[in-house]
Design a protein around this nucleic acid. Structure first.
Lengths: 194, 194
DNA sequence: AATATTTGAATGAACGTTCAAACATGAAGG
DNA sequence: CCTTCATGTTTGAACGTTCATTCAAATATT
């Protein structure tokens, strides 16, 4: 999933941490196993990261920005009748192709919220996502009397919620769920644009 | 939050586990600390629960059904013009009054998805929630040509997504988000009922 | 007296971190 | 071109701690 220059040891460790954590989780994953996956000695991780916690924070930061980058692709979609449907395809395929990615995102999110530092880190990381959602929405020239922040919140909420359902429910009907949500939004936009 | 007969040692342990886990998380929480919180000896927990994992599963099960019970209150709301808004107040206040409850729910969810057994347990627990969402929706006599499963998915997704945002973003505007979502649903229902 | 419950010390395994030593790199000096 | 030396990187064993689980003994219940 990730590819970088081989010389970059720090990146190699983060990649390995991603793999191991996505597989077995932050608590079961030992520094020893991460080091083994990265192909380096155990002690080297603490040379680049003061503690395991620091490694997790950098990983969370990287995962979040990667998620934002994927979402940014929405900007490349031409504005049309089917814009909403086309835009929703991106997160839908993301959940389908990388479920473990989302699982890890939620895990790091949940454990991050336990600490003061984690909360600050998370707030910082998610700010960008929210801003981008509002930005993407600006393409739909909605009237001034609708709350763009609120609609953005709904959009992000649905994406997260769908990801959760897709992970936990093997019978989750992605097409129907995303399709219906697109329909609901289309109706809303149509009514509000009048 | 929970109250039970004192003689029920098992329940006492689960209550204590809930408290400690909500506070510091499943990995930082030791059996020793849970026992201390419950006011019992350390070894007693393993008398009632074969392993820590079993304790976590029972806790998750209990938390999920409690969540469903709270949501069930929606059935008591009279069907009216403001039904959707009234119904959304229940989960909204739930997030506001017990954020740590949701945090723990997501934590147990994320770590549960890592194991085969966890996935099965989660699927079982969430099935009830989905069924209840569909049931609540049946009050709104929508036409036959709308996908009730899909709309239920959207509803549950938004609730989870809002909970996530409320936990991570101190500036999250609950009233605006829930209000706008209610408006969107109202428009959808109005259009679809025609 | 027999069974069920409770205790808390003991056990052994696993973990994150530290650290002295080894190794690599490359600039400075002869 | 080779040596020296200082700096940056890598190693893996050692350390100290923490943890879930076990269990023989004690206590309560039937």
């Amino acid at each position: 999933m990730i590819r970088r220059a081989d010389g970059d040891t720090k990146a190699k460790i983060i990649d390995a941490a991603y793999k191991v954590l996505a597989d077995i989780g932050h608590d079961k994953a030992s520094m020893k196993e991460i080091a083994k996956e990265a192909g380096v000695a155990q002690g080297l991780i603490n040379y680049y990261f003061p503690s395991k916690e620091d490694l997790l924070f950098e990983l969370f930061q990287m995962e979040t920005s990667r998620y934002c980058d994927e979402m940014m692709k929405i900007d490349g979609i031409p504005l049309s009748e089917t814009f909403i449907r086309d835009a929703l395809k991106i997160p839908m395929e993301l959940v389908q192709s990388h479920p473990e990615w989302h699982r890890l995102r939620f895990e790091l999110f949940a454990i991050g919220l336990r600490s003061e530092r984690g909360c600050q880190e998370i707030a910082k990381c998610l700010q960008a996502g929210r801003e981008q959602a509002v930005h993407s929405m600006s393409k739909l020239s909605l009237g001034d009397h609708i709350n763009k922040d609120a609609v953005s919140s709904i959009l992000l909420a649905v994406l997260d919620g769908f990801a959760l359902q897709a992970m936990s429910n093997p019978d989750f009907d992605r097409e129907a769920a995303y399709g219906t949500f697109a329909e609901i939004l289309e109706i809303y936009v149509a009514v509000k644009s009048k």
